[in-house]
Design a protein around this nucleic acid. Sequence first.
DNA 1: CCAAAAGTGTTATATTTACACCCATGC
DNA 2: GCATGGGTGTAAATATAACACTTTTGG
Lengths: 241, 241
Amino acid sequence: MPPTSAQNINTWITQIHNDFKAAVSVDCVIFGYDDNSLKILVSRCDMPPFENEYSLLGDLVRPEENTDEAAKRVLMAKTGFDDVFLDQVHVFSNKGRHPLGRVITVAYYSLIKIDDDHLAHIQPNNFLRWIPVADVQSLAFDHLEIMSTCLKKLQKHLREQPVGFELLPQKFSLLQLQRLYEVILNIQMDKRNFRRKLKSLGILKDIGEIQEAVSHRPARLYTFDHNVYEKKKNAGFNFEL
Amino acid sequence: MPPTSAQNINTWITQIHNDFKAAVSVDCVIFGYDDNSLKILVSRCDMPPFENEYSLLGDLVRPEENTDEAAKRVLMAKTGFDDVFLDQVHVFSNKGRHPLGRVITVAYYSLIKIDDDHLAHIQPNNFLRWIPVADVQSLAFDHLEIMSTCLKKLQKHLREQPVGFELLPQKFSLLQLQRLYEVILNIQMDKRNFRRKLKSLGILKDIGEIQEAVSHRPARLYTFDHNVYEKKKNAGFNFEL
DNA sequence: CCAAAAGTGTTATATTTACACCCATGC
DNA sequence: GCATGGGTGTAAATATAACACTTTTGG
């Protein structure tokens, strides 16, 4: 016999307000790209038993915000940037994943440009550190698994839409862009084919400037053309590499 | 000045065990395919103010289970199937999304074969109903948005990996498969190109049987070859359509 | 003049698209 | 015999992959 409406609702009310509640957090895998290497921003963990580990940046979701807002708040607090690429990736909810009790976390990944503005912001905070993804052996909690899941999502995204620009300075050379793809996807690419392909997407704007003070032939500099990208995306254009 | 460790932990303990808790639920968008139409399994909603609406199938996550387990439990309870395709899609956490208070929900989509086993299971439960996705105008809570997000994810998956088989009977004809792609993706496909492409993936097994009692030339029947698929997937094969 | 990265085209191969007719079955 | 879906091949266009040399700058 199916339950009646009244029974169902009373059960819900009891459970929502008592035993079935959980703390909900967000954790951000903040990717940056610097010195030909993909890095994540982590913080020294201050919670036993992980005092010697680094952890991702996160916080509990507050009663008045949704998880996107919580993630944006964490990013603003830790990086000084408000307008960053942010993507919800996956929920991690295994029993026992947090030593203080049940904490269900929503993982996000974000992409930021490691520039002087940002570095000035984190300088005073000696708990924060950029570490190369390739060097990460372990992290506090289940954060290694979270990082790994987010890295896979970033790699997938990189192949199907132009997210790489979010990690580069506003002006960049084609080789810089190619190296970024190579580092993140862990593959080698052909210079001429890469250039042809990217130019054919039509989302690079040649700004008529060249590199300065480099000890080789200076490269042309490009920017990402957001307008063209949005227009083409809405028209169903396929940006796959 | 950065906070000390002790302060941080005490703050966490307070927040985890008091004001910052939320109820967490799972909601499943259960897709089925029948009669050349994509459908979802919904239930008459018994919670004000949505008594005249249908809602997705979901439940609160219990203290001893993770969200995947909760979603599997819901599926087992509502469809009678244990071994179904299930994919976590997105978290919905807007304030006010649930009338009884803060409920954060993790959305899953799943694919099931609407066959006799299943129909026998839901028959006794008159609260459940299959409705064509195309006919859904509104659902309780924010479930219309959840359905729409899950449908987009299904469409994306269908283009990049062979999930369509999960919706068909074990034995199917190539036209059945093509119609499924056309209905879900809302496009027209060329019969000869579709067949060539699918056969080239190597994951169809011709079982040497043909349709019976059809008033036209009977079609050959195929099954999905899980073994070959797993092998090719692990080798990095690209199944994009 | 040397080191370092910039920049550039062609050819072969693989993939995708468009397209039309005869076949087997039930009624 | 007719309605219904089953089943098949080819040619053109497009996209991808492989590959090497000259140019420009700083030191």
